[in-house]
Every structure is written in structure tokens, then in C-alpha cells.
Design a protein around this nucleic acid. Structure first.
Lengths: 130, 130
DNA sequence: GGCAATAACGATAATTATTACTGTTATTCG
DNA sequence: CGAATAACAGTAATAATTATCGTTATTGCC
């Protein structure tokens, strides 16, 4: 139980993410943070993003691209990844989400399902041919 | 259109994966392959796994863990990842799969959905407390 | 406020998964 | 067989992330 200490860098990182919908990578957050604290370290950004994710204040998204992404939204929702530009968009939970999970949980006998995530792929509006 | 040439290494890699359900990493395939061709190169394994995935003969699974996984099954199905031991299990498609996709496609207006994948998390039978 | 304890920092080295390069080998096809 | 070249083994390079380490900043107590 290492007693968490306050840090202005962590505050900044949390604030920078707040309200953002572009699901930035650690490096993108680092670039933003440098404009406020020019000599903040990339390691500090990684450490605090991971810590905030562990604390449940933000969400870490793995597997959507080469690098991990970070999302200020902590409510359950899915993501859409544009196969053309790589953009990541939030999706609002569909009606069928619950049924999908319930059905999977019922029919799956090799273990106990606790959660799931779904990622949709396709072309975003900007990349769709006219 | 570079004319594909036959290679015994590629044959081996395809054969090694055939029938396997453990979703091995490139490195795991490399270890297996070395027992047949002791001086096969890791680069060769990576190159051929990627090539086979592009040809549609196998599937590459990204984002399930640190390293990419490879699956001989090419039919659409989901995966279950044990949060305890990291084991990856195949899941049989549920009834709700289609509805889930249809509903998401309908309600999503920021682009055009082409596909999706879902990953379930939980404890496998071996890791469940008794 | 001053001060000890230590969480967190900045800087940098190390690690891991993967891709790229390079000279050599093997397959294909005339 | 022999030229053309895909694919190879071996190795170097890259990218994302984590670990180390000496220094700085926060906290709680006197």
C-alpha cells in the first residue's frame, strides 16, 4: 500500500485527456504535455497514464493500432477504427450488447466470462469514396 | 504481381499451425519449426505467417496480448482470453452476432462498418477457484 | 517553518515484438 | 543446364514500452 502522492504532472495528464475524443497515444499526450511543462518526461506520461487507468479514472485501449490509446470515457462502449486513416471513434452501446454478452456467457463452457469488448472496422466519413 | 515461389519453410509453417488451437505467437511457431529445420530463421517465420495471413490461409490476431497470435481457423469467430493465465480459446459464433453487427451498422453514422471482432475476458476452467 | 521519509520525477538504458537489410541459396522456367 | 529472382539465414534497425537511478517535490510531524 504505497501511499499515493500528489503530482502536478499527473493532474496535467488527466486534464489534457478530459474531453478529448481522439483517443491519443502516450506520445500524443506527451506532445501536448510538453506545451505546459516543456521538460516533462515521456516515462512520466507512460507511468501516469497507466496509473490513471489502474485507478479507473481513464481507460487504456490496446490492440486498436500499433500503440496503446487512452480514453477519458470510462463507461462501457465500443470503438470504430477506420481501416484507411486509422482514426478511432466512440460508438454508443447498442441494444443487442447485453443479449450478445448473455448469449455468449451461456453457451461458453470453457470458463467464466467477465467482460468483453468489440471493435468495429470500416471507412470513416472522411475516407468513404464520393 | 511478384510471382510467388514455393518454399518448404512456408509449407512447414502452414502445416505446424494446422489443427492447433493454442493460437501461438510467431516465436512459438519458430520454436516448433526449429525442431524440423534447426536453422530456420525467426524472420522467415514472421514473413511467412504474415504472407499466409494476407493470402487468407490463416488469421493474424492482434491485440489479444503483447504479441500477435496466429489462428489456422479462417471462419469468423470470437476469442476468449483468460485474464489469469493468458490462454486464448475459440468461441462458437452466437445467434446474436448478426443482430449485434446489424444494429451497430444501423445506428452508427460516422462511417461505414465492414466488420467487427469481439474479445471476451474472464477466467478459464483451469484458473477458476474451486 | 524546518526536516525527515519517500513518491514521483527527468534522463536514459534496457527490453520486447517486429520489420528491414544483405549477401547467399533454392525454385522455376525456358 | 542456366539465367532470373523469390525466399532464405543471419543480423541490424525500429518502435513502443518498461526499468533503472540519482535528483526533486510532496507530505506529515515536530
Amino acid at each position: 500500500m504505497t501511499a499515493l502522492k500528489h503530482s502536478r504532472q499527473r493532474d496535467l495528464i488527466r486534464d489534457l485527456l478530459e474531453g478529448r475524443t481522439d483517443h491519443p497515444t502516450a506520445d500524443m499526450v506527451f506532445e501536448s504535455a510538453k506545451q505546459v511543462y516543456p521538460n516533462i518526461s515521456l516515462g512520466t506520461v507512460y507511468r501516469n497514464l497507466s496509473l490513471l487507468a489502474e485507478l479507473g479514472e481513464i481507460r487504456k485501449l490496446s490492440g486498436l493500432g500499433d500503440a496503446d490509446r487512452f480514453d477519458p470515457r470510462t463507461d462501457w462502449h465500443c470503438h470504430f477504427v477506420c481501416t484507411c486513416c486509422g482514426k478511432i471513434l466512440d460508438m454508443e452501446p447498442a441494444e443487442a450488447s447485453g443479449r450478445f454478452l448473455a448469449e455468449a456467457s451461456e453457451s461458453f463452457s470453457m470458463g467464466e466470462i467477465r467482460s468483453y469488448e468489440a471493435t468495429f472496422h470500416g471507412l470513416c466519413r472522411d475516407c468513404l469514396p464520393v
